[in-house]
Nucleic acid binder design. Sequence first.
DNA 1: TTAGGTCTGTCCACTTGTGCACACAGGACC
DNA 2: GGTCCTGTGTGCACAAGTGGACAGACCTAA
Lengths: 261, 261
Amino acid sequence: MDARTSNATEIDSRPTNNLLRRLSQADFALLAPHVMVENATANELLYNPGDDVQVVHFPCGPALATFVVPNEDGRDVETILVGREGAVGGIVSEGYLPAYTRICVKFGGPFARIHVSKLEAAKQRSPSLRHVFARYADCMLAQIFQSTACNAIHSIEQRTAKWMLAAMERTGDASSVPLTHEQLATLLGVGRSYASRVLQSFKAEGVLDTRRGSILVRNREGLRLRACMCNEAVKMHFEEVLRGVYPTEEGEPQLGMRSKR
Amino acid sequence: MDARTSNATEIDSRPTNNLLRRLSQADFALLAPHVMVENATANELLYNPGDDVQVVHFPCGPALATFVVPNEDGRDVETILVGREGAVGGIVSEGYLPAYTRICVKFGGPFARIHVSKLEAAKQRSPSLRHVFARYADCMLAQIFQSTACNAIHSIEQRTAKWMLAAMERTGDASSVPLTHEQLATLLGVGRSYASRVLQSFKAEGVLDTRRGSILVRNREGLRLRACMCNEAVKMHFEEVLRGVYPTEEGEPQLGMRSKR
DNA sequence: TTAGGTCTGTCCACTTGTGCACACAGGACC
DNA sequence: GGTCCTGTGTGCACAAGTGGACAGACCTAA
């Protein structure tokens, strides 16, 4: 509604990644020449364990990436989801180290990419830019900590509901998650038949519906009732540390990070 | 054996924290004036959620800290152990942010402390120092990722064995862990009676023995056989990224990080 | 329109872990 | 030397989750 500011076009042309959109114009200008947006499709691997981390990927729009911890016996575990609120690759390590986890595109979409060396050079020049990334790294850490606790004490039912909500918040899609029962089970690190049963019980309660290869959410509030509060805890930390970056149902963070005018 | 270098005394007087000992002399010199070593006792809280993180704590000797994720229903979960291989507080966030987790002294001992502002100032002046801390942050991240996966798919038996080994590697103590069954159970996020039963089965197999308030390890190799490989996976990452920082049974990292001479 | 592969719902026997209860053992303190 | 408290060992009923199996449903492609 105040899209008539002189630089609205320039701002709106930024990739739809909340982290990038939160940057001041000056900071974004440092990165802009090196940012490239490309599409990635579901299941594409951004990094494998041991890969040299050289590129930071910012999921845009409905794109979603996950960190997958491989396991000797093949039972890989998905840990955290990263959508347009964040970025993956060298966020904590500042790059040039072997990746520990696999990073996998969960839902396809555009990804903004920048070489770590360019990002680090920009951080060198702008403390405020460094600061935003340090803050995001802290939020990502919080997310993983919460995941660890969640896996330790919450039921599969709770975690299923939590995962669905987290995915929907990030993609912005109102209703459907393209996932087979098998995939959902793997992602939670549980058996397929039990995952099916949980979905079945949700279905019986009218919370969601199942299609071949996708899950439809019928009653988001019901889902929230059945989920643990882990999402909320993490969201609060995001709000405290990086106000407006975490996607919510009320809408995206507005541009113009300085709240004046 | 080459303890006759001119500055041997100065080096040996460094706190017995492997991260600090890995620093070049020049880098350590930047920190030294601001480092203070103080003892902390078990169960002391270094941070509570929401606290402003202003001090970095480096566990020395047998000291051990843990990150505890509090839970709405009071079922707190301990996540990762940090001993003399690392540090806690503002490692990822670079300080001045509200703590997300509780940080608790698990086993008492000396802690070297430095104010985040001093550490950050030193990083500003020395890229190599910054680099060491970025690398450690990456290792810590790996540790948490592995924990998340471990909690998702490994049995309580495996996790108990893993925890015992991890604690012993870090404290260097050959045999005894001062822990009640209750504490062990809480720390793993499981019921007390089941934890007792697992210990009982280990005892029956001659792997460990129980005393009132502490657990004695009888057969470390047996413990390793019963543990998951999560420790090893993390250890490998440490070795790759920060060779010699992770404590092992073979001994501590030797000083003089440049291997020449 | 049929064939074939994948996904889904459900059954079953089994293991893992929970939560409560209770007897009793080990120390610490008077 | 008794008292009291906390910690330990164990029994039981139950809940949660596993892993294999299989029939049928859905979709695609020929």
